[in-house]
Amino acid sequence: MSSDQEALPYWQVNVSPEQRSLECPAFLADANEKDQKILATPDADYRRLSWSEVQRLINTNRIDLFQRVPSDLRRYKAYTARLKDEYGSVMNFVMTERLRWQDLVSKGEPFSDSDDIKILLNDWPYGIDSRIVHLVVWVKFQFEEDAITGDLTDAARKQLNSYVDRTFRAHVGSGNCIWFKNWASLKSIHAVEHFHVMLFDPDREFVKQITNDDVALADKIKINDV
């Protein structure tokens, strides 16, 4: 890292000189210490996590260590700030534009009705090996959680794991699929239940089929849009 880069405040890193602002943009003003550190890192110095590192973080329940590529984090925060202005909340946008659900009333027991489930690409994936496909499974039902720990109960974990087995692992192999459910404190959207599935180097036609040919927002929007 050059001395010039080291001297820049976090909101000016990964921004061309002509686009740098003297004051911190409003959408970055509430960035916590972790995000500020990420934003202050030049993209060139960022190292993406390998598949084995991703598996280790999930298996040891250190999902708090996932982070986005610095410039992607900046775009994410800029875009979500705009969504809050336009839709009132990110949840309203997700419900209206991404899920296109009118309500969150489930038609039966968990995973019993396909209308209660929607699989989409993660709009703003983490800084991981580009061969890893990060999916989000949105559902209209709630998972049973331990009242003390807030973690999934053994029964709920078994139920969820069974769904992942037949929906994903049956197609990509057990070694190429892993899932996790965010802690409540890490969720960006609380009102709509969801969990994450990561696939290592899956067949792209399978991904298109399972997501109904979805395209992540990060790939749809242009830099100038945020």
Rank of each mutant, 00 (worst) to 15 (best):
A31M: 02
K34H: 12
A26L: 13
G175Y: 11
L135K: 06
A184N: 11
D30W: 00
T96N: 10
N224P: 07
L160Y: 01
S3Y: 12
P70T: 02
I117L: 09
K84Q: 12
S50Y: 03
D123F: 04
E145W: 01
P9C: 02
R48E: 15
D129R: 03
S71Y: 03
V192E: 00
K37G: 10
D219Y: 08
T96S: 15
F111D: 05
F93D: 00
L186N: 11
L57T: 00
G127V: 02
Q5M: 13
R169Q: 13
A81L: 00
D103W: 02
D225T: 09
H134M: 08
S50W: 02
Q209Y: 13
D4M: 12
N176H: 11
N182F: 08
D43W: 04
A7Q: 11
L49V: 00
W101N: 00
R157Y: 12
K84A: 10
L186I: 05
R20F: 03
W179C: 09
Y46Q: 00
R74M: 00
I119D: 03
N32E: 06
E18D: 13
Q67V: 09
S174I: 14
G108W: 05
S114M: 13
F180A: 02
K118E: 08
D129H: 03
D214S: 06
T149M: 04
L49T: 01
G175N: 15
V133E: 07
V215N: 06
N224L: 11
V136D: 04
V215E: 12
A218C: 15
H190D: 13
D103G: 05
P25K: 03
D85I: 11
Q55R: 14
M91I: 11
L104C: 10
L135P: 00
I128H: 01
N224G: 09
R20E: 05
A81H: 11
V226I: 13
T211V: 05
V164E: 05
A191P: 09
M1Y: 10
A216V: 03
P202H: 04
A31C: 11
L199C: 08
R131T: 09
F168S: 08
F66H: 04
Y87S: 00
T60W: 01
L217K: 05
S2Q: 08
P110R: 01
L199Q: 04
G175T: 13
D123C: 03
K158V: 10
K37D: 13
G173T: 06
F93H: 08
I117N: 05
F206Q: 03
R157Q: 14
V172N: 07
R48K: 14
V94D: 01
I128W: 03
V197Y: 04
S162T: 15
W138C: 04
R74A: 00
V137A: 01
I148W: 08
A191N: 15
H134N: 08
R157L: 14
I210G: 07
S50C: 00
N59T: 09
F27C: 11
K37M: 12
F93Y: 15
S89P: 04
E193M: 07
E23L: 15
D115E: 15
A81Y: 09
S3M: 12
I178L: 06
L217S: 02
K222T: 09
Y46R: 02
P125H: 03
A26P: 07
H134F: 08
A218G: 10
A31V: 04
D72Y: 13
N14G: 01
R98H: 03
T153K: 07
V133H: 04
D35G: 06
Y46D: 05
E109S: 13
D154K: 15
E97H: 03
S114Q: 14
